[in-house]
Computed example of a mutant assay.
Amino acid sequence: MAGERTDSAGGARLALIETGIRSFGRSGFGVGLREVALEAGLTAGSITYFFGGKKGLVAACDEHVMAEVRAQLPAILSSRKKTARLRGDAQRHLANLEYLMRALRESPAVLAEMEELLTGVACRQLEHASTTPPDRVELQARAAEVVRRSLGIAMLDHALEPPRTAADLAAFVTSSRDLSQQLASELATDSPP
């Protein structure tokens, strides 16, 4: 959609969000509004019109990426396949991942939302892996430990070798999923963190 003028209001708004995700993910949150608008084939004024400014565009990008994460996560976690598969366009998923990794470093709101989402997942993994029902407080502490370790390793892996292809992305998602499950399994039997 880059370089094309989008006629519908909904299409223009979505074009700005998708372009913002790619631009901010690739170059950071210091990217100017004109650059984002130009890549989307629109004017900087359209960002102000739809989002009230850069802060609103970033918030819309955050919301869009986190909605994608929430939509994809159940399929990734429940997959019985050795390699996780994402539904939809690989290039969009690569852009979302790039944005998410940057946002986790630079946006406390995105980090908090991701931690909350993944802590719920980790609690379920720990409950499943535990031989005895864990205490709720202990379960939350162990789940937080799984999330911290998993996110930290995923962010380091991404920084060292970001996925560039659909196959790279599948391998990255699979290794992150498997690591989280392994950590949950280990912490289910260890002493409290």
Results as ranks from 00 to 15, higher is better:
93 H>Q: 07
86 L>I: 12
94 L>V: 01
97 L>P: 03
58 V>W: 07
95 A>D: 06
64 H>N: 13
101 M>E: 12
77 L>D: 03
112 A>D: 14
92 R>N: 00
91 Q>W: 11
90 A>K: 03
107 S>P: 08
76 I>S: 03
104 L>Q: 13
96 N>R: 05
121 V>L: 10
142 R>E: 02
108 P>W: 07
87 R>C: 09
77 L>R: 00
102 R>G: 10
140 Q>A: 09
82 K>E: 04
85 R>N: 06
133 P>W: 08
116 E>W: 09
131 T>P: 07
60 A>N: 13
58 V>I: 15
112 A>N: 09
95 A>I: 02
69 V>N: 00
115 E>K: 12
97 L>S: 03
115 E>F: 11
142 R>P: 03
81 K>D: 11
129 A>Q: 14
115 E>M: 10
63 E>D: 14
100 L>I: 07
78 S>W: 04
78 S>K: 02
133 P>C: 05
135 D>M: 08
91 Q>D: 15
67 A>G: 07
62 D>N: 15
69 V>L: 12
59 A>R: 15
104 L>K: 08
105 R>S: 14
65 V>W: 09
85 R>H: 11
61 C>P: 06
137 V>E: 14
136 R>V: 14
86 L>H: 12
87 R>F: 10
126 L>S: 07
61 C>N: 04
79 S>I: 03
69 V>C: 04
77 L>A: 00
83 T>I: 15
75 A>I: 02
85 R>W: 04
100 L>A: 10
129 A>M: 12
143 A>Q: 06
84 A>E: 01
101 M>N: 11
85 R>G: 07
88 G>K: 08
60 A>T: 11
118 L>A: 09
106 E>C: 05
82 K>W: 01
97 L>C: 08
120 G>T: 09
91 Q>I: 10
85 R>C: 03
125 Q>D: 13
92 R>S: 00
66 M>V: 01
77 L>W: 00
143 A>R: 05
62 D>Q: 15
62 D>C: 14
128 H>E: 14
79 S>H: 03
72 Q>V: 02
137 V>T: 15
142 R>N: 03
117 L>A: 06
130 S>I: 02
